[in-house]
Amino acid sequence: MSNWEMVITVAIVAIGTLFTRFVSFLIFPPGKTAPPFVLFLGKALPASVMGMLVVYTFKETTVFTYPYGIPELIAFLVTVGLHLWKRNMLVSIAAGTIIYMIIVQNI
């Protein structure tokens, strides 16, 4: 890909991102109640996305060969434990990721 093509690609992605961010304010202006289905999606999607990320994270974990999925299990337990304790998603995910990386690098 040439430099010009890369600039065009980044510009198209930026315009698409901005469009999807701003169109929601045009469809649902402030002061107007969103439809019940949109409100339902706002409540259901965060948990669904987190569940999908958990499944994606563990889908290739091998439990029958060394290290038997132990680093993933420890990182998962740290993440869940910190989230239940602190109720801060950023802290729990960051700590779980850091713990996982430290364990994997030292095996």
Rank of each mutant, 00 (worst) to 15 (best):
M1G: 11
N3R: 13
W4V: 08
W4M: 14
V7K: 15
V7F: 15
T9R: 15
A11F: 13
V13F: 13
G16I: 06
G16P: 08
G16T: 00
T17G: 15
T17C: 11
T17S: 07
F19M: 15
F19P: 02
F22I: 07
F22N: 09
V23H: 03
V23P: 06
S24I: 11
L26A: 01
I27G: 03
P30C: 11
G31M: 08
T33Q: 09
T33M: 01
T33W: 06
P36T: 08
F37Y: 01
F37A: 06
V38R: 07
L39V: 07
A47H: 01
S48P: 08
M52S: 14
M52T: 13
M52D: 03
L53A: 07
Y56L: 13
T57V: 08
T57S: 06
T57Y: 01
F58S: 01
K59E: 02
K59V: 07
T61G: 00
T61Y: 10
V63A: 11
F64P: 02
Y66M: 14
Y68C: 05
G69K: 07
P71R: 00
P71C: 05
P71W: 00
P71Q: 05
E72Q: 14
E72I: 07
E72L: 12
L73C: 05
L73F: 13
L73A: 15
I74C: 12
F76T: 10
L77W: 01
V78P: 11
V78K: 12
T79L: 08
L82A: 09
L82K: 10
L82F: 13
H83G: 03
H83M: 05
R87H: 12
N88C: 04
M89I: 07
L90T: 09
L90A: 01
V91Q: 10
V91G: 04
I93A: 05
A94M: 15
T97G: 11
I99T: 15
Y100E: 04
I102E: 00
I103D: 02
I103A: 11
Q105Y: 00
Q105W: 04
N106G: 00
N106A: 11
N106T: 12
I107H: 03
I107S: 10
